[in-house]
Design a protein around this nucleic acid. Structure first.
Lengths: 125, 125
DNA sequence: ATACTATTGGCAATTCATTGTCAATAGCGG
DNA sequence: CCGCTATTGACAATGAATTGCCAATAGTAT
C-alpha cells in the first residue's frame, strides 16, 4: 500500500525544514516531540533513514560528534559549518575561503575539503 | 615504584615519533608490533592514554574516523590535515588559508577552526 | 641473582549509537 | 464505518571502540 502521512513523519520533516541548521537525531527527537508527543527515538531513526534513502536529507559529519542531517537541497550548495562550543549547535556558513589549493602538499590531489569553525554563536556570547 | 622502560612502550613511542603523521590506535598497533612482537591492542590503548595524560601526545579528530594521535609539540603548532580517500591515511598540512574571519556569521565569535582536505596522497594517485 | 611490583595481554564487560523484533496503533481505500 | 496493513514504540540485540579484570611476565633496585 502507499505511504501514509503520519503525525510523526510530519513533525520530523517540519523540525528539519524549519531548523535552518543541521540537526542530530537527538535534536530532531527533541524538536519533533513538541508536535508529536511520545515520539519514539526508534521512529526518528526510521524516518531519518527513509528521508536519506529518498534523497531528501543529507548527512553532515562534524569531528567528534554524531552525525547531523540537513535538507539535501541545502547540502548540495557547497558550504561549511560553525559549531558553538557552548550549546553544541551547528550552523551553516555559506561562504568559502580562497587559496586552499596552496595548502595541498606536492604530489597530492585535492578533490574536496571541509571546514568547521569553532567558537560562540550569537546566543552564547 | 617508578616507571619502567619497557619494549612495548618504546615501540609505541617510536611509532608515533617516526610516523610524521597522526596515527590511529590500530595504526600504532600495526607499526609498533614490528618492534614488539605480540603487542596487545590493550597495551596500545593503555600507553596511548598514559601519553595523553602526560601531555606527550594530543588527539587529532577527523570527521567520520576514529581518533588519531600525534606528538603534542607538533599539535601545538597550528596546522591542518589531508586525508587520502584511498589509503585512509591522514597527513599534516603546515599552512593555513587567510580570510576565514570573513566566513563568521554576524554576532558569532570564532576561537578556532579545523580544515580537512580530501583527495589522493602522492602514493595513491 | 633475588624479590618486589609495574606492566602486559587475553578475554570479558562496558558503553553508546543504531537496528531488529513484534504486538499495538492508526492512516486510508473501499 | 470496516478492514487491511503501514507505521509506531518499547525492548532486546547488535556492532564497534574502549576499558576492567587478573594471572603471567619482565623491569629494576638491592
Amino acid at each position: 500500500m502507499a505511504r501514509r502521512n503520519t503525525l510523526q513523519q510530519q513533525a520530523i520533516r517540519t523540525a528539519i525544514e524549519s531548523a535552518g541548521r543541521p540537526l542530530s537525531v537527538q535534536e530532531i527527537h527533541d524538536l519533533a516531540s513538541e508536535d508529536a508527543p511520545g515520539l519514539g527515538l526508534r521512529t526518528v531513526y526510521r524516518v531519518v533513514n527513509r528521508l536519506l534513502d529518498d534523497g531528501i536529507i543529507a548527512p553532515v559529519i562534524v569531528p567528534g560528534q554524531q552525525d547531523r542531517y540537513e535538507l539535501a537541497r541545502i547540502a548540495a550548495k557547497h558550504h561549511h559549518h560553525f559549531r558553538c562550543e557552548r550549546c553544541d549547535r551547528v550552523f551553516d556558513v555559506h561562504a568559502c575561503p580562497s587559496g586552499l589549493q596552496k595548502l595541498v602538499p606536492d604530489g597530492f590531489v585535492m578533490t574536496d575539503h571541509t571546514i568547521v569553525l569553532h567558537g560562540r554563536c550569537a546566543e552564547c556570547i
